[in-house]
Design a protein around this nucleic acid. Structure first.
Lengths: 330, 330
DNA sequence: TTGTAAGCGTTATCAA
DNA sequence: TTGATAACGCTTACAA
């Protein structure tokens, strides 16, 4: 459908080299010839075929991004930033969505590689040796966001472990006597990459150990609300706070409480992780940890580009600052 | 970095044609030769370069999707569905995000076209003759979601106008005496595509005209909360409902009310549009219109593919069913 | 100022 | 069973 250099050349009765020179303004072209060429190009709305160009000089100037779980909005907020940072350096960003299946994720990554993306950003749900080897076998620069795969692959993240520790400190400082950690089922950990949640759990465990008086528990299941209910009923005399590894857990706990006539933080404390952007609509304002998605995204892009540009690149683990947002639910 | 057919051929001491036959299982290849070839291919993790393949037979089997405004979540919910529908038919989906700038949108669309996407899905923020011509000049199948550009380009949507009319009917049937419509500034309408909002406004106007007793008003500005405040103060004696062209408007009005000790629907009624997925976390449950994103997305994909496949395709306007969700805020 | 020729990696056709 | 050749659209080096 679109017109090609060859067709323009034919129409103008010159060689395609001449056409190229006219279009790209390199070398010298007879004034009249140039005008004729430009006129035809304009008339037929000529645009270079980037596939052909890329094939030719081995660069697509495109990055791939694999997003998980777009409905939960973890990572979604970063997309704009990734897009803009990449654009600043002349790269086009191709996003694909994965929707929680391990196989899909691999398939999409492969698809991006097959399309000659120069680098790929992932917040992976796969994990383990096999996945690592898969990624390395692509021979493409890759940067992970949040979830680590191995130290052979650069990861950009915040220090979730110390963030969790500080969160517990905050909770204790507010006089809570019992703290319950809510996170995804740990059983999936064998197959699925829940690195950030694991790190947070580690931080939680390390921190509660510092407070002998503090009662603590962990709820790690898909159907966590019944347990939450239990916890609250069984010990009304102790002031209890829930630390949730992800704001949406916290929002569900909040909603459940509201439906049952409880008030936060009077009846129990609540704290989340991630500071997802829908929190602005929710009241009371959730106390949470900002995982600095903007910073992480921007850093991930520039790290990826550094990897693309340099011959010898050594993988890193990069930690950015998080920020505890002490709002209304503790 | 990646190995090519030519390199395999060289390594195996055969022609690339033979390598191809072995890899693609077409034609006949000597048993031993085949094994040698496959072994080398496996060892070096051969993958066909899709750029080259596409260039060759003129098909990329890729669709482009331009999403707007990802943080407001309009359209985001559709991405998974688009992705899956496309995959079912063998297409790869490339998403790009646009972040509210008219120029960016054009640039991204052009980028997708230059990369030889076979079709493009947009929920455009641009509008007008010039934009229409731009789209047509690409000579690529395009389907619009929600916002119409012109009847030369297929649009898939729900009938927002009748949805708005029905919403007013519902509000009236609940005994409200005053209804206020909140939508984006109408001034932008010259440049920016706010077709869905315009349609809703038309429906609103048409419907209130049916009820002579009903008082009505329209608030169309970025900073709408002061007006909302005014409206509520000035006429406490009349039961008032706000119909918001977008759930996030409604959520802001709700939050404002909560902060000011008002209760919904006791003090005023509230209704939104879109049924965005964060509503599940919000209480009271917002009465809203489900614009059937899933259905719209799936239809848009299959319409786009139909357009790709058929030689003579005539643009359509496709309307899907919406659904009024009468919940707790009226 | 203009053109020829070779190449990017894949595929298809035709001949040996 | 195998290979040579041309083509997709663009780029570059070299020659006229």
């Amino acid at each position: 459908m679109a017109i090609t250099v060859n067709q323009i050349a034919e129409k103008c009765g010159v060689s395609r080299t001449t056409v190229l020179r006219a279009l790209n303004d390199r070398g010298s072209v007879g004034k009249e010839t140039r005008e004729r060429i430009l006129a035809v190009a304009k008339e037929y709305n000529y645009r270079p075929n980037l596939l052909a160009r890329s094939l030719n000089h081995g660069r697509t100037m495109s990055l791939g991004v694999v997003t998980i779980n777009i409905e939960n909005m973890y990572f979604v907020q970063s997309l704009n930033i990734i897009n803009k940072e990449a654009d600043k350096r002349g790269y086009f960003t191709n996003i694909v969505v994965c929707d929680e299946s391990l196989d899909w994720e691999k398939k999409l990554i492969q698809g991006l590689a097959d399309r000659q993306m120069e680098g790929i950003l992932i917040s992976p749900i796969n994990k383990g040796k096999e996945f690592e080897e898969f990624l390395l076998s692509l021979h493409i620069p890759i940067v992970c966001i949040g979830n680590q795969v191995s130290d052979a692959i650069t990861t950009v993240q915040v220090n979730e472990m110390t963030a969790a520790m500080e969160s517990v400190d905050l909770i204790v400082s507010k006089g809570y006597e019992r703290v319950v950690f809510i996170c995804p089922p740990l059983a999936v950990k064998e197959k699925e990459n829940i690195y950030v949640h694991e790190q947070r759990l580690l931080g939680f465990r390390a921190s509660v150990a510092k407070y002998p008086e503090l009662e603590s528990a962990v709820i790690g299941k898909t159907d966590y609300l019944p347990d939450v209910k239990c916890v609250i009923k069984e010990g009304r005399e102790k002031r209890t706070a829930f630390l949730c590894s992800g704001d949406s857990y916290a929002l569900n706990v909040m909603r459940w409480g509201q439906q049952n006539g409880m008030s936060i933080p009077k009846d129990y404390g609540l704290m989340g992780f991630d500071n997802i952007n829908i929190l602005e609509f929710i009241s009371p304002k959730l106390t949470t940890v900002s995982t600095n998605l903007e910073g992480v995204a921007a850093t991930a892009v520039s790290e990826l580009l550094a990897q693309i540009d340099s011959e010898e690149y050594s993988p890193k683990a990069i930690y950015l600052n998080y920020k505890i947002l002490d709002r209304e639910t503790l």
